[in-house]
Design a protein around this nucleic acid. Structure first.
Ligand SMILES: NC(=O)c1ccc[n+]([C@@H]2O[C@H](COP(=O)([O-])OP(=O)(O)OC[C@H]3O[C@@H](n4cnc5c(N)ncnc54)[C@H](O)[C@@H]3O)[C@@H](O)[C@H]2O)c1
Ligand SMILES: NC(=O)c1ccc[n+]([C@@H]2O[C@H](COP(=O)([O-])OP(=O)(O)OC[C@H]3O[C@@H](n4cnc5c(N)ncnc54)[C@H](O)[C@@H]3O)[C@@H](O)[C@H]2O)c1
Lengths: 210, 210
DNA sequence: ACCTCTTTGTGAAATAATGCGCAATCTAAG
DNA sequence: CTTAGATTGCGCATTATTTCACAAAGAGGT
């Protein structure tokens, strides 16, 4: 929803995090929180929280704080999560299986609606409640499903090709788990989750006692 | 390796990425690259690449560029990857299974050396080449293994408890896959991979055609 | 109605990261 | 040995993000 205002990327990333925190609070029957509460409870910076929200309007009441339900609803709307988003998965391997079987997805308003692979031994088999489909069918399948988000869970060597197939199937946003850089048209957004990169950063922070 | 110089976190994150790119280049028998080559090949900004490296010394030769082998070796050393790092995995569920079976780990100098769970039905079973162990044994097991990095792949509700167990087992760096905030002592570094957060950010960037 | 206490929303200051521009360095060729 | 061409490393300007600090807003008590 890239509207008029220019929202910093770190703000956007935190926004999604706030949602998680609010789910937690709801479970604990917390109805109202102040930004200071949030800071002590969830380690988020109070000033930053308020600043983040300020890009999108006014959300709280001075002297009181924020209504958990209302804030959750409004952040969901900001992130286009008011209705469930369909997601395509390419690569029905180990990671793909974990993702397809990942239940919180549903409650957070995402749903993997189709899984694709190019391995003839996998095509037609079940992956949880999905039947694995031939990647060659992706364009026609998505003509029906109209998903706009795709996940790449194929080996790095097939990632570029997969990205191109997703784009040709009309997907506009891609989450890439393969450890490789992907060239895409500028109207497509890619986010990259790189497990090895995260481990490498941690490794840097190891104390060098040995 | 938090030595004298203060390295920006984004630089560190990119450094790990550069390693991936160099592996690629080696496969294609590229011996030397300039920062400009890198920009056109891998979408990284040439000036930024040079700046990133400059925190750690001099790596290239004016007029020529960088030697791929040498640079890979030096970045590996910066990130403490010159020798294999042992990693503990807690949570032998869907995600844990994918991670434990993830082969590139080995080639990138990480190795999951033990998997733990608290489910009696899982303890003792095999997870690829590992035998799933009782989480209650983590302290004694790691007295022997001496791993310093831990992965949390348990449900969010058990994440805090798991973090504490890892810390008490002498782990100093944690990679958390559970969608929740974790309180840890300040000498421990945590990195958080949040799949739902990434999807939410993508969702924000959906064009609002509907 | 008034005072006190709390907490928001937001300009403005401070800090952090990025990207520009170029002197310095190296190669290769004549 | 000199010149031309390429490319690094890095100071510094620019841009982005975080943090501060406070006026304005509301609650609740008297
Ligand atoms: N397993 C993990 O824990 C993990 C963690 C982080 C990142 N990754 C990355 O995720 C990706 C998948 O990992 P994995 O462990 O599931 O691998 P995998 O080998 O288990 O699965 C890959 C799947 O992709 C399919 N595939 C290959 N080429 C294809 C193509 N051109 N079109 C469609 N499907 C194709 C294969 O048939 C296979 O089913 C890899 O890039 C890996 O580096 C995996
Ligand atoms: N599956 C995915 O694709 C995926 C993706 C992103 C994030 N995650 C997150 O990763 C975590 C694991 O996901 P999953 O799908 O593998 O779940 P899962 O239910 O398949 O596995 C969780 C495992 O943790 C074990 N466990 C529970 N409490 C424990 C405790 N106190 N100590 C030790 N072990 C314990 C369970 O016995 C189970 O084996 C969750 O937090 C999930 O939100 C999963």
């Amino acid at each position: 929803m890239p509207n008029g205002i220019k929202v910093p990327m770190p703000t956007l990333e935190r926004l999604a995090n706030y949602l998680t925190i609010f789910s937690d609070l709801k479970i604990r029957n917390v109805e109202t929180v102040s930004s200071a509460d949030l800071e002590s409870r969830a380690g988020i910076n109070a000033a930053q929280f308020r600043k983040d929200l300020s890009y999108f309007g006014e959300f709280g009441r001075p002297g009181i704080g924020y209504n958990v339900n209302e804030l959750q609803a409004r952040i969901s709307r900001i992130l286009n999560l008011q209705k469930t988003q369909s997601v395509l998965l390419v690569g029905a391997g180990n990671l793909g299986a974990a993702l397809a079987g990942y239940h919180p997805l549903r409650t957070e308003n995402f749903q993997i609606v189709a899984a694709f692979d190019n391995n003839p031994n996998k095509i037609g088999k079940q992956l949880w409640d999905l039947t694995i489909q031939d990647i060659d069918e992706i364009i026609s399948v998505n003509k029906v499903l109209q998903a706009r988000i795709g996940i790449i869970a194929v080996p790095a060597s097939a990632a570029q090709e997969t990205a191109e197939r997703l784009v040709s199937a009309n997907v506009v946003n891609i989450l890439n788990f393969a450890p490789t850089f992907i060239r895409i048209p500028s109207n497509v957004t890619v986010r990259h989750i790189d497990f090895l990169q995260e481990l490498a950063v941690l490794s840097y922070y190891l104390p060098e006692d040995d």
